[in-house]
Structure formats: C-alpha cells, structure tokens
C-alpha cells in the first residue's frame, strides 16, 4: 500500500516536473519562425535542372513538412528511371501531364493521374512514373524531409531517383 502511495506521489511529481520544464524553459535553440511566402508559380515553373534533359527539381522545407516540385521530361532515352520511396503522408498535385503512382503493396490499386488531379496517400512505399512527354508536379509531405533533402537550395539526390543513376547522369 505504502509502495503504491510512494509510486503515485513520485509519478505526479515527475509528471509535474516535466510539464513545468517544458512550459517554462525555452528550447536551447528556438526553431526559426517561417514567414508566409509564395514559393512557386505554376505558370512560370522554371526549376533547377538536376538531370539534364530529364528532370528539374526543387524543394522547400517547412517546420513539419516539405514541398517538392518536379519537372520530368522525356528525352531520346525516355524518362529517367524512378524507384520506390516511402517518406510519410503525401499529397501530389499533377500540374500538367499524365502520371501513374504505383504502390509496393500490390493490394493497393495504382493511381492514374491527369492534369489537375490532386491525390493523397499515407505512409506507403510507392513510385511515380510520368506517362506523357512532360510531367510537372508538386508534392506536399509530412514529416519534414530534412535528413533526406537538407536545406532549401542544396543539391540532394532528388526523390525517386536512384543514387547511382544520379551519380552518372545528374548535375554534380
């Protein structure tokens, strides 16, 4: 009985100490307070070319989410090969083109998207494949892809692109 009482008291004190600590002490390094910003114009979507002739790519980091714009182009060799990825909850807006989304779990039906479609899915392994000469798209995803893509303006391996392919074909 005494043991339970001590346990309860210690539990309450420990809980209170955590709550007080979280509410009173500012974080050692406060996260940046992002501004409200227009970051992309679909009518003038000129992305940095990361795979010449085949892919433009750019990303913008938020606090808990990431926006990614991609512009696929078919060249003499076709579209660049894409691979399966799984990186959180995703909303994909196909600005222009025809695009298929395939899921590693074959019980999930693929999505066949056309210009203007907006699709979503949870944290599932998937890949995208452009079915027209060009595909322009924007992805919103959460959680933030900080480890994967790094800060805005960097030169990461683009999403869905095999690192070996990027090493030989990408802008380095």
């Amino acid at each position: 009985m005494l043991g339970r009482l001590i346990c309860s008291v210690v539990f309450v004190l420990a809980t209170a100490s955590v709550v007080v600590a979280e509410s009173a002490a500012p974080p050692a390094s406060a996260p940046p307070r992002f501004d409200l910003e227009v970051f992309l114009d679909a009518n003038k979507m000129e992305l940095p070319v990361v795979v010449p002739g085949q892919l433009g790519f750019q990303h913008w980091q938020g606090m808990v989410s990431t926006a990614v714009a991609m512009h696929f182009k078919r060249d003499a060799g076709g579209h660049l090969p894409t691979q399966f990825r799984q990186y959180g909850d995703i909303n994909l807006h196909l600005i222009e083109g025809k695009l298929d989304v395939e899921f590693a779990d074959e019980t999930q039906q693929p999505l066949h998207m056309k210009t203007g479609d907006v699709a979503s899915w949870g944290n599932l392994s998937h890949r995208i494949a452009c079915r027209s000469d060009e595909c322009r798209l924007l992805i919103f995803s959460t959680p933030v892809l900080w480890q994967e893509l790094g800060p805005d303006g960097g030169n990461p391996v683009p999403l869905y692109v095999d690192s070996a392919y990027y090493a030989t074909h990408g802008r380095q």
Partner: peptide
C-alpha cells in the same frame, strides 16, 4: 499575419505556405 508584420497577395497559379501562426 497576426502581428501585421507581413501582407502577401497570391495570384492565379501560385503556391504559398503559411507558418503555424
């Protein structure tokens, strides 16, 4: 934004992000 530090106009075709404020 709440503190009026920023006004933004967004036009057709544009994407924007709001911070959690």
């Amino acid at each position: 934004l709440d503190d009026a530090r920023e006004h933004v106009v967004v036009d057709e075709g544009q994407f924007m992000r709001w911070p959690n404020v």
